[in-house]
Computed example of a mutant assay.
Amino acid sequence: MSRQLALLLLSLLPLAAQAEVRVLTSIKPLQLIAAAVQGELGRPEVLLPPGASPHHFALRPSDVRRVQSADLLYWIGPDMETFLPRLLEGRDQPSVAVQALPGLTLRHFGEEQGGEHEHEDEHERHADEHDHDHRPGSLDAHLWLLPANARAIAARMAADLAAADPANAARYQANLAAFERRLNGLDAELKSRLAPLAGKPFFVFHQAFDYFESAYGLQHVGVFVAASEVQPGARQVAAMRERLKAAGPACVFSEPPLRPRLAETLAAGLPVRLAELDALGAEALSYEQLLGNLAEELAGCLESL
Results as ranks from 00 to 15, higher is better:
10 L>C: 06
18 Q>D: 12
22 R>N: 04
24 L>M: 12
27 I>G: 05
38 Q>F: 12
43 R>I: 03
47 L>Q: 09
50 P>N: 15
51 G>D: 11
63 D>E: 13
68 Q>P: 00
72 L>M: 06
73 L>V: 11
76 I>N: 02
76 I>P: 02
100 A>M: 12
104 L>Y: 02
105 T>R: 14
114 G>L: 14
115 G>S: 11
118 E>A: 10
119 H>V: 10
127 A>C: 10
132 H>G: 08
133 D>Q: 08
138 S>A: 15
139 L>P: 01
141 A>I: 03
141 A>K: 08
150 A>L: 13
160 D>I: 03
170 A>V: 05
171 R>S: 07
172 Y>N: 11
179 F>Q: 03
179 F>M: 10
179 F>R: 06
187 D>W: 10
190 L>K: 04
191 K>L: 02
194 L>K: 01
196 P>K: 01
199 G>F: 06
201 P>N: 09
207 Q>Y: 09
210 D>A: 14
220 H>F: 07
220 H>S: 14
223 V>M: 00
225 V>P: 01
230 V>H: 10
232 P>M: 12
249 P>G: 04
252 V>Y: 00
258 L>A: 08
260 P>Y: 03
262 L>T: 01
269 G>T: 09
272 V>R: 02
286 S>T: 12
289 Q>A: 13
290 L>K: 02
294 L>Q: 08
299 A>C: 08
